[in-house]
Amino acid sequence: MTAEEVVRLFFEKVRSGRELGDAQKYMAPRVLAHQMTAEQEVTVERTPDDYADHVREMQEAFGTFELDIQELIAQGNKVYVRWKQRGTHVGETDGFAPTGLPVIEIASAVYRVEEERIAEYWIQIDRTGIRSQLESQARASVKSVD
């Protein structure tokens, strides 16, 4: 299986939340996740089970979300993916009570694949955009209560 196929199947089955039990098939036992944020770059080590739990947490916050790959570029053992995730704010997240309104996440990552499994990735998420949506929804819900 090529690196592109591994990452595409990982998105279709695991990152989408559809088949979380398949995380073992597409991820190495220990994966370095480099979270590239403006405020602080952090590297965490994830196992396939940790990652499945992470997706479950997203589902608790944003329900059964839609995940659209907008761009996928492969070069050797590295694969770049940019995606749009659409969900509904159904659970508390970042201190914001659920509003039942749509939330969109735009993100991208570069995945390094070794031995047909994701071994490392560098991810960037538009956290400010998500926070802005949540703040706007919170203001709107306060106005509707008044």
Results as ranks from 00 to 15, higher is better:
Ala61Ser: 12
Ala61Tyr: 07
Ala61Phe: 06
Phe62Gln: 06
Gly63Asp: 04
Thr64His: 12
Phe65Lys: 04
Glu66Gly: 15
Leu67Gly: 03
Leu67Asp: 04
Asp68Val: 14
Asp68Ser: 13
Gln70Pro: 03
Glu71Met: 13
Glu71Lys: 14
Glu71Ala: 14
Leu72Ala: 09
Leu72Cys: 10
Leu72Val: 10
Ile73Met: 10
Ala74Met: 09
Gln75Cys: 12
Gln75Gly: 13
Gln75Ser: 14
Gln75Phe: 07
Gln75Trp: 10
Gly76Met: 10
Gly76Trp: 11
Asn77Val: 05
Lys78Gln: 14
Lys78Val: 06
Val79Ser: 00
Val79Asn: 02
Val81Lys: 03
Val81His: 00
Arg82Asn: 05
Arg82His: 11
Arg82Asp: 01
Arg82Cys: 02
Arg82Pro: 03
Trp83Tyr: 14
Lys84Val: 13
Lys84Asn: 11
Gln85Tyr: 00
Gln85Val: 11
Arg86Gly: 02
Arg86Pro: 00
Gly87Arg: 04
Gly87Trp: 03
Gly87Tyr: 02
Gly87Ser: 10
Thr88His: 08
Thr88Arg: 15
Thr88Gly: 06
Thr88Asn: 12
His89Tyr: 07
His89Met: 06
His89Leu: 07
His89Ala: 04
Val90Leu: 08
Val90Tyr: 00
Gly91Asn: 05
Gly91Cys: 08
Gly91Met: 04
Gly91Trp: 03
Gly91Asp: 08
Glu92Met: 11
Glu92Ile: 09
Thr93Asn: 13
Thr93Ile: 11
Asp94Trp: 14
Asp94Cys: 12
Gly95Trp: 07
Gly95Pro: 04
Ala97Cys: 08
Ala97Leu: 12
Ala97Arg: 14
Pro98Gln: 08
Thr99Lys: 00
Thr99Ala: 07
Thr99Pro: 03
Gly100Leu: 08
Leu101Pro: 02
Pro102Asn: 10
Pro102Thr: 05
Pro102Gln: 08
Pro102Met: 09
Val103Lys: 00
Val103Phe: 07
Ile104Pro: 01
Glu105Gly: 05
Glu105Pro: 02
Ile106Met: 06
Ala107Trp: 01
Ala107Ile: 01
Ser108Leu: 06
Ser108Val: 05
Ala109Lys: 02
Ala109Tyr: 00
Ala109Val: 05
Ala109Trp: 04
Val110Asp: 06
Val110His: 04
Arg112Gln: 15
Arg112Ser: 12
Arg112Tyr: 06
Arg112Trp: 09
Arg112Val: 12
Val113Thr: 06
Val113Gly: 03
Glu115Trp: 07
Glu116Cys: 08
Glu116Pro: 06
Glu116Val: 11
Ile118Ser: 02
Ile118Met: 04
Ala119Leu: 09
Glu120Phe: 07
Glu120Ala: 07
Tyr121Arg: 00
Tyr121His: 12
Trp122Asp: 05
Ile123Gln: 08
Gln124Val: 14
Gln124Asn: 13
Gln124Pro: 05
Ile125Ser: 03
Thr128Lys: 14
Thr128Pro: 05
Thr128Phe: 13
Gly129Trp: 05
Gly129Ala: 11
Gly129Cys: 10
Ile130Gln: 01
Gln133Pro: 05
Leu134His: 07
Leu134Thr: 10
Leu134Trp: 01
Leu134Cys: 10
Glu135Gln: 15
Glu135Ser: 15
